[in-house]
């Protein structure tokens, strides 16, 4: 564990807490894409199947359980909570998840490290996480008056991905056998998807205006 990875994981955790805070405090999930949340739940579900087969550390196990629990509770609120579910912008959240799920599944079958079910599902989760933010970014572009908590949620997610790149550089330099091309390429692509968002986020911050994506 290095400082970049710890910072990345904590930023990821805080982003999820910010989203839960928004839902609790405002009783609203306005501007949040259920499609992205569904995809993240799928990502965690498939990636953390090794919870049952391999013990890495207490930190690792606890974080996996927290990510699984929080992602499913967010989906629960958005789908079933009496008040919150009515604030979901279903008409605006139109991205077709199938267009990213199928290519990621095909890619995982073709490009993986090992022909085993667990490994292919794990690889699928890596590819899927890289593009799972797309429905959220599309919804943000359509949302007038993005609220602060939603903007900060996406900002924290992007920061978490950026910190993971620093972690990989650090590990590449300090751990001779650490090579993960699938994870690195997917991660760099994923971080790239936030570049546009970051530009408008800082523009809004500098000009002291509300965030809006053109």
């Amino acid at each position: 564990m290095n400082i970049f990875r710890l910072a990345a994981d904590m930023t990821h955790l805080i982003s999820i807490l910010v989203l839960l805070l928004k839902i609790h405090a405002t009783r609203s999930c306005r501007g949040i894409s259920l499609k992205t949340q569904d995809l993240y739940a799928l990502v965690f579900l498939f990636r953390y199947l090794d919870l049952f087969t391999r013990y890495i550390s207490l930190y690792n196990t606890v974080m996996k359980l927290v990510f699984l629990g929080t992602s499913f509770s967010i989906i629960y609120f958005m789908r079933f909570h009496r008040v919150v579910r009515n604030t979901y912008d279903k008409e605006q959240d139109t991205f077709r998840s199938i267009f990213i799920v199928v290519p990621c599944a095909v890619l995982a079958l073709l490009i993986n490290q090992e022909r085993s079910v667990l490994e292919i599902l794990w690889t699928f989760s890596i590819y899927l996480e890289a593009v799972a933010i797309l429905p959220q970014l599309v919804l943000l572009q359509r949302t007038q008056n993005i609220d602060n908590l939603t903007g900060n949620y996406v900002f924290l997610l992007g920061t978490y991905r950026g910190l993971y790149i620093l972690n990989w550089i650090y590990r590449y330099l300090t751990e001779p056998h650490y090579r993960q091309w699938i994870v690195w390429l997917s991660g760099v692509l994923q971080t790239g998807l936030y570049v546009d968002f970051f530009y408008y986020y800082f523009l809004a911050w500098r000009n002291n205006q509300k965030l809006s994506l053109p």
Binding site: N60, Y164, R179, I182, V183
Partner: peptide, 10 residues
């Protein structure tokens, strides 16, 4: 490609 050792990341 890579090694499974680095699957210690979240």
């Amino acid at each position: 490609l890579g090694t499974t050792a680095s699957k210690d990341e979240l």
